[in-house]
Amino acid sequence: MWFTISYIAWAISAALALWMLYDWFKTDTTYSEDQLTSSREGEIEAVSEKHKV
């Protein structure tokens, strides 16, 4: 029984890994690089946290 479970585990791992690769490829080809890497540190700070005392 454990050997069967083991094969299922390999299969699930492979399927999810392939899905991630597929989604990665799809995302990278759909959106521009500038858009994907547009996150900036400290944005919310600038809006919500006023460091004035």
């Binding site: 083991s6 094969y7 585990a9 390999w10 699930i12 791992s13 999810l16 890994a17």
Partner: peptide
């Protein structure tokens, strides 16, 4: 070993 792969990938 399949469980190592399962844990990390899932």
């Amino acid at each position: 070993d399949s469980f190592i792969a399962l844990v990390i990938v899932v």
